[in-house]
């Protein structure tokens, strides 16, 4: 069995555990490479079906091409898409110039919180990976969030032998992370292997730059790259010593620790 097959089998097992144990289950889909791979794995796990809704937390600052790609896959794969948006904060003019942490918290964390409360989801599947960033390296596959959506990283439940935390007190919910053991290269290798459609924002379209990680337009910056195909990306990533999220402004300083403690993805 290849490493990619090992990863796929483990992720499929986790997705099926999530589906079995959570009546109110949903998956976050940002249209980025990771959550699209996750969506593909879901179709694998359930033999072509996606038996729960997908959530897109729309900050309104996403790159327009992402929304086009989203709507195309929703049609082609017959997905049940739920869009969450913190309309109040947007109406009050929230944007990144008010501080990145403030903006991420309002439009993403709170946007998600509000939607979870409104829909009553108790299980939320996310495509985060341990190698992205150091607080995510400490996550569990099934990670509880308390009544305030907060992550108590000081006291995480034990998780062993593919037995996960699937019971939880009322009012709390569980975040499920099937891609935790995947690396950035693994994600691209899998996209190549399975011919998964992805956005060309990840490729150099002639100006010598590409996006390595996608977020909101004002806070995501392209990297210098001449990668014009998935193969080029894989070769580039095997050589690089630059962190994946170097183009993501929210990671500066202790940004992610504080954001994630409060319920950020």
């Amino acid at each position: 069995m290849t490493h990619l097959q090992e990863l796929e089998n483990q992720s499929v097992y986790i997705l099926r555990e999530a589906y079995k144990h959570f009546d109110h289950l949903a998956m976050l889909w940002s249209m980025g490479k990771d959550s699209t791979v996750l969506l593909w794995l879901t179709r694998k796990a359930f033999f072509g079906h996606v038996p729960f809704p997908l959530i897109h937390i729309d900050t309104s600052y996403k790159i327009p091409a992402m929304i086009e790609y989203r709507d195309r896959l929703v049609r082609e794969w017959r997905l049940n898409l739920v869009i969450g948006q913190n309309k109040e904060a947007l109406a009050a003019g929230m944007n990144h110039t008010r501080g990145r942490g403030v903006c991420c918290t309002a439009l993403k964390t709170d946007g998600l919180k509000n939607l979870l409360a409104e829909k009553g989801y108790t299980g939320v599947i996310l495509g985060i990976r341990a190698d992205e960033e150091s607080t995510r390296a400490k996550e569990r596959y099934f990670s509880p969030r308390d009544k305030n959506n907060e992550w108590d990283f000081r006291d995480q439940p034990p998780e062993l032998w593919d037995q996960f935390k699937t019971t939880f007190p009322p009012g709390t919910h569980i975040r499920i992370h099937p891609l935790l053991d995947w690396t950035e290269v693994n994600v691209w290798e899998y996209i190549k292997l399975e011919h998964i459609p992805f956005m060309d924002l990840y490729l150099d379209r002639g100006d010598g730059t590409r996006f390595r990680s996608l977020g909101c337009a004002p806070c995501t910056f392209p990297i210098q790259s001449s990668a014009r195909s998935v193969d080029d990306i894989i070769v580039e990533l095997r050589q690089t010593t630059v962190a994946e999220r170097s183009g993501r402004a929210q990671d500066e300083g202790r940004g992610m620790e504080l954001l994630r403690k409060d319920g950020y993805m």
């Binding site: 341990a130 190698d131 390296a137 400490k138 000081r154 995480q156 935790l180």
Partner: peptide
């Protein structure tokens, strides 16, 4: 990674690294 871990010089939870 956590501030508390660095302040106390003790690892609280496992980190997966690659």
């Amino acid at each position: 990674a956590f501030l508390e871990e660095q302040e106390q010089g003790v690892t609280i939870d496992t980190a997966r690294t690659f």
